[in-house]
């Protein structure tokens, strides 16, 4: 199957690039920026499946990210649960919560999911802030132990970089597989016409629910990795503002493209770091770049790249014919 081979090639190139990058960077600080970028990319790949493929909007993925971080962090820091188990519990619990939210809302057509997740995000924020005994309140949860896998603690940033990069690659591979299947076709179909999808037997509520839960699970995975990297979690990192940033990453990257999602997440994570040099006009530049992106790349980084490649190939072919 040709598309699969293309995916395999893409993933191979990506893995190589990912593995080499830290050795090309001169500043260790960039490695930690990339790690944060990978967390965001894991969330955005999932959110992109929900938005770009199934056409459902969530305003609560910041909260799922936060739940992953807090649940795992609290279990490990306060109750001494081994990190692997704490992370697993956090991911499963977040998935179950998403399922509970999705069941009543995704049966209805319309933007009920956006509203429900918005409300959910607010509630989660309140809990993070107010349950001071458990969460540490507004000043945050501290003392979260570093990630340990199979008895090895990922002390160095470089080892953490590879663990996170591998997790992202796995998330990408699973998503690519999912998209090129009966399930992916069903998602894209119901995005265009729910009635026509139902007509050929697609249980649309079930598929929306599945992709919603999956995207929440990805967000929770990113949250777990975050908590055991920074050793710290504060409510402000997981609020409405961050949920919206995630949506911007999806749109900027390009709806309905796994590669676009990764590009959008990495670009928007790195951009503020580069703009830091322009101290005073940082925010203005950030906004300006976003607006330019939307104007000139209506189908996002992914769509723009595809178009550019086609244009270049076209020119190349024309050139070749002339010779």
């Amino acid at each position: 199957m040709a598309p699969t081979r293309k995916n395999l090639l893409g993933l191979g190139a990506w893995t190589l690039l990912m593995a080499l990058t830290p050795h090309l960077l001169t500043n260790d600080y960039y490695v930690s920026t990339l790690i944060i970028g990978f967390f965001n990319a894991i969330i955005v790949v999932g959110l992109n499946m929900l938005m770009g493929y199934a056409g459902q909007i969530s305003l609560g993925h910041g909260a799922f990210y936060g739940l992953g971080a807090y649940v795992s962090g609290i279990l490990a820091a306060t109750y001494g649960v081994p990190v692997e188990a704490a992370g697993l519990i956090a991911i499963i619990a977040t998935g179950l919560i998403a399922w509970g939210i999705g069941i009543p809302t995704l049966k209805l057509s319309g933007h009920y999911l956006a509203m429900a997740t918005l409300g959910f995000g607010v509630i989660v924020s309140i809990v993070f802030n107010e349950a001071v005994e458990t969460t540490g309140g507004p000043s945050g949860l501290t003392g979260i132990p570093r990630l340990t896998l199979f008895g090895i603690t990922m002390e160095s940033d470089l080892s953490y970089y590879y663990v996170t990069g591998l997790a992202l690659t796995l998330v990408m591979a699973l998503s690519l597989n999912l998209i090129q299947s009966r399930l992916g076709r069903a998602l894209r179909a119901l995005h265009t016409s729910e009635r026509a999808a139902e007509a050929v037997g697609v249980d649309i509520a079930r598929y929306k629910l599945f992709v919603f839960v999956l995207s929440a699970v990805f967000a929770a995975l990113a949250g777990v990795l975050y908590a055991h990297y920074l050793g710290f979690a504060a409510p402000s990192s997981f609020g409405f503002h961050f949920s919206v940033t995630l949506l911007v990453m999806v749109v900027l990257g390009g709806m309905a493209s796994v590669w676009g999602a990764v590009a959008g997440a990495l670009f928007l994570t790195a951009l503020p770091e580069f703009l830091r040099a322009f101290e005073n006009i940082e925010t203005v530049l950030f906004g300006g770049i976003l607006i330019l992106g939307m104007m000139f790349l209506p189908s996002g980084l992914a769509g723009g790249t595809a178009k550019l490649t086609r244009a270049l190939l076209g020119r190349f072919r024309v050139g070749a014919r002339r010779v």
Partner: peptide, 8 residues
């Protein structure tokens, strides 16, 4: 009224 999955 046609219900084609136009993006596929």
């Amino acid at each position: 009224n046609l219900e084609v999955f136009s993006n596929m």
